[in-house]
Design a protein around this nucleic acid. Structure first.
Length: 274
DNA sequence: AAAAGCCCCTGGATGC
DNA sequence: TGCATCCAGGGGCTTT
């Protein structure tokens, strides 16, 4: 599901609403990818000051620590303003944070997502989950020369290096194919074979595609929506993702679909020659 | 150190 | 209608 744009759209949809609230109660459903890391009751009374994002993680700043939320493949959050009646936890609701401002709830059928509490920003669990992450593509630290240097160190295919997240974060399966299309780069090229000009074109394409996707509210393939229920629309303007056999929007050649590391990759063999 | 494969889990689409 | 198979926005862990 959620790549950087969806996570960012989710963040924007509730960050200001939950800020400066106090946790009233916490409910847990079935186990997620990792255990919460504290008793649910430990979060009660905590003040939520802000919501940040690092890669595909949402970071809720609490006065007593940090709550990391990852949406995995099928997760989505909802936020219901305080004062409503409040519904019971559904079969796929696995975490709920009821605060003075409203209720944040994680729905995640596949349960690849996670909610993890860390007592401090430098807690071991934070390091374990975040320390290996690469540059933030929409921030100033996404330097083109650092990007090029990162690619130089890797012999794997450029598509898989983008997905791996240790050079640049947030680019998942949809946006990797899309960015490579916009840069005119074949997904199978080894990362270290890209010249500086081509790496630089990809650098720009990654930024452009992700920023555009945020503007469009992300991509809703099946069930993504932000915390206020809004679905995304970027999938409607995808150039190659999910378009196997359909004509390339630029040259008309049928879009190809190949497998790379057990994931689908889409590209136009004519627009992305090498 | 880096790459490749496996696995976690549920549900929708497709084919017989 | 039922059942088997494949596929899906991620990513950590184990094995090469």
């Amino acid at each position: 599901m959620p790549e950087l744009p969806e996570v960012e759209v989710t963040r924007l949809s509730f960050a200001s609403r939950i800020s400066n609230s106090t946790v009233l109660s916490v409910q847990i459903g079935k186990p997620l990818r990792w255990p919460l890391g504290c008793l649910p009751a430990h979060l009660v009374g905590a003040n939520v000051s802000s919501v940040r994002r690092r890669g595909k993680y949402l970071l809720l700043d609490l006065d007593r620590g940090l709550l990391l939320v990852h949406l995995g493949m099928s997760g989505s959050l909802s936020f219901t303003q305080a004062g409503g009646s409040g519904s019971a936890m559904g079969a796929h609701d696995h975490f709920e944070l009821r605060t003075t401002a409203g209720t944040l709830r994680l729905n995640d059928p596949r349960r690849f997502g996670a909610v993890v509490f860390a007592p401090a920003d430098d807690a071991p669990i934070v390091g374990k989950l975040l320390s290996h992450l690469g540059m933030e593509p929409l921030s100033d630290d996404f330097d083109v020369h650092a990007f090029y240097a990162g690619l130089k160190r890797r012999k794997a295919s450029i598509k898989q290096v983008l997905l791996a997240g240790d050079v640049v974060v947030g680019v998942g399966n949809i946006y990797a194919s899309e960015a490579l299309f916009h840069a005119g780069i074949r997904p199978t090229v080894r990362a270290n074979r890209l010249s500086l000009p081509r790496a630089s074109k990809l650098h720009a394409a990654v930024k452009m595609v992700l920023a555009r996707a945020v503007e469009r509210g992300g991509s809703t393939l099946r069930d993504f929506s932000s915390t206020d229920g809004q679905t995304g629309h970027f999938q409607l303007e995808a150039m190659v993702y999910g378009r196997t056999g359909e004509p390339c929007r630029v040259c008309g050649t049928a879009v190809k679909n190949i497998r790379q590391g057990q994931r689908s990759t889409f590209f136009c063999a004519k627009c992305q020659k090498m």
